[in-house]
């Protein structure tokens, strides 16, 4: 019982320690300087009172959702094919591996050139979605391909032996066999996408949490800059927790994790 309380308390203790360090490092700062925890809390209140926070959160999540979903839709089937067929892998893996280490932010000029004048829900939404797509696509494709390459031979042979081939083989054997590793890849990728969306919104966009950070800086409100950063962190944490619970449910059903 006591050890359980300790286990629950420790993360809070860690956060409290971090806030204390933050407080000490910013002692005596005004809100035009790097704000301390108390000023940040007040900044968060102001941010909420401004009434644009929710709109900016929705804008960022919306861009990530579209870019990430499109990347999964294209990247998972492509990854399955690359992992399964050596010829395709030899042909298409090199370009994927060369494009992958290019920061999606470097694509920004091209993205605005291509999509800058397209108006959808918000001008330049498409450019940001394009960047999220790029950030997610290479990562999802690569992790899916390696998931497929690691499938146990006996599953592939069982399917062959029972005459299951083609699309049926891909959807009924390849995809489910690779699913645990694909889900881990998706979770890590979603984390990358969330990092990238904020960076992408720093330039040429007028909504989103990245814009919020920039806007607050332009008004010399560093308390709001920090408040927005805290919001970004908390939403990232929520996205990760959501992906983790999907992953856990799948692994439990498969008996890889024990149900409790």
């Amino acid at each position: 019982m006591l050890s359980r309380i300790r286990r629950i308390l420790r993360p809070f203790l860690g956060i409290a320690f971090f806030i204390l360090l933050w407080h000490l490092a910013t002692l005596g700062n005004k809100r035009t300087d790097v704000a301390g925890p108390y000023l940040t809390l007040l900044g968060l209140r102001d941010l909420l009172l401004q009434g644009v926070l929710l709109k900016n959160i929705v804008a960022s999540v919306f861009r990530v959702a579209w870019g990430f979903a499109l990347a999964a839709l294209v990247g998972i089937p492509l990854g399955l094919a690359l992992g399964r067929f050596a010829v395709l892998n030899q042909l298409f893996n090199p370009p994927v591996q060369i494009l992958r280490p290019i920061s999606p932010i470097a694509w920004l000029p091209i993205a605005t050139l291509l999509f800058g004048r397209v108006r959808w829900f918000d001008p330049s939404d498409l450019a940001a979605i394009f960047l999220i797509f790029l950030a997610s696509f290479f990562s999802i494709t690569t992790s899916t391909a390696s998931a497929v390459a690691n499938i146990e031979t006996k599953y592939v042979r069982s399917a062959q032996n029972l005459g299951v081939t083609g699309l049926r083989f891909a959807t009924k054997v390849l995809l489910p066999a690779a699913m645990p590793q694909i889900l881990t890849g998706l979770r890590i990728t979603l984390g990358i996408a969330w990092v990238v969306v904020v960076a992408a919104e720093m330039l040429g966009v007028s909504s989103g949490l990245g814009f919020q950070v920039n806007d607050a800086r332009n008004n010399l409100r560093y308390d709001i800059v920090l408040a927005a950063m805290v919001v970004i962190g908390l939403i990232g944490l929520l996205l990760d927790a959501a992906m983790r619970s999907i992953e856990k449910a799948e692994l439990t059903r498969r008996g890889i994790l024990r149900a409790n």
């Binding site: 006996k154 069982s158 032996n161």
Partner: peptide
């Protein structure tokens, strides 16, 4: 020349699919 449904292989550590 290839595996066939007429001749089925039973694997050392079961080859049944854990997702079904």
């Amino acid at each position: 020349t290839q595996p066939s449904r007429k001749r089925v292989f039973v694997f050392q550590e079961t080859g049944i699919f854990p997702w079904l």
